[in-house]
Nucleic acid binder design. Sequence first.
DNA 1: ACCGACATGTAAACGGTTACATGATTTG
DNA 2: CAAATCATGTAACCGTTTACATGTCGGT
Lengths: 178, 178
Amino acid sequence: MSLRMALLGVLSAYGSASGYDLTKGFERSVAHAWQAGHSQIYPELAKMTADGLVTVEAEGARGRKIYSITPEGRAELRAWLIGHDPTGPARSEIALQAFLLPLLDPGEALAVLERLKTYAERKLAELEALWAAKHASPVPEGTSGVRFGDLALDLGIRHTRTTLQWVNDAMAQLERRA
Amino acid sequence: MSLRMALLGVLSAYGSASGYDLTKGFERSVAHAWQAGHSQIYPELAKMTADGLVTVEAEGARGRKIYSITPEGRAELRAWLIGHDPTGPARSEIALQAFLLPLLDPGEALAVLERLKTYAERKLAELEALWAAKHASPVPEGTSGVRFGDLALDLGIRHTRTTLQWVNDAMAQLERRA
DNA sequence: ACCGACATGTAAACGGTTACATGATTTG
DNA sequence: CAAATCATGTAACCGTTTACATGTCGGT
């Protein structure tokens, strides 16, 4: 369902868009919350059309199909947001490596943590750059007062900061024993 | 690969175990970092046996097969921990709902955040209880000084606390505008 | 005798990734 | 005219979930 909802959301924000646009839009906007490539998006849009959640509004140049959300689509999205409990299983390779870390001797473990640190730092810089870029331009039209995607980006930044802090603390703890 | 590594890790910590034991062990110990049910574990153990990473040490009552890790298995696990960059795509339903939240009017958005808050609170309580239970008993044998799984549990707790804080801030922000 | 926990497996379906395949239009 | 970008699709594969299927052992 999540892919569907992400597509409905982005489409709803765009007003109308092609599969191609949505693929690019995913990379730019939702990427840190949900990912999908064109090979997943095109078939899904076809299924959603069959289910009446979106319609092909027009067909442009190069076989470009322009989709827009239907009232049914809007209703489904709303219902999911209001009613769906995000129970999604939290699989994280970082957490798994953290779990298994005591199997290594302290020196090796430190090296792994060093790697995780670099990774987290890079990701944090990326997300913060995205935030800065978004907030450089003045406020565009907003549904309420909060900009589309800002809440999710904020969450992502906070999570990454937490990870970074955890790595630092874990390293300090290991060094004290080494 | 991750499932394999999680299995090798748990098996390595247990010394020896059956598929059944590992399934139960997953629920108890790695659940917050990685999940797998028996229907995924049994076939994987068979493949790992074929690949020489584990061996059937003995066959007990009720067709119970007792596995243990081989030197090759240990080597693979070590190599993965030291060499594998955790690039795993971060898909999060919470982040997705956060992303889409501005599509709702403030009252509805608040209700969604309230739900997320309850969810995060329940999860935090769960993880903290797990932590308390683990640390109630005195220190068991440890590979270094850190207990198996403690680092990952700590990370999980910190992440959940961060989520909770984010929800609270988002709610306050919305209420200021409502 | 029955129930619950132990114990192992398979199959169908689903979601996601990677690779294959094709062609139109714009820009240098 | 060549290269980049636009634009859409399909197929094979892999990992995960859910459901089906079977049987054993211990306690009541």
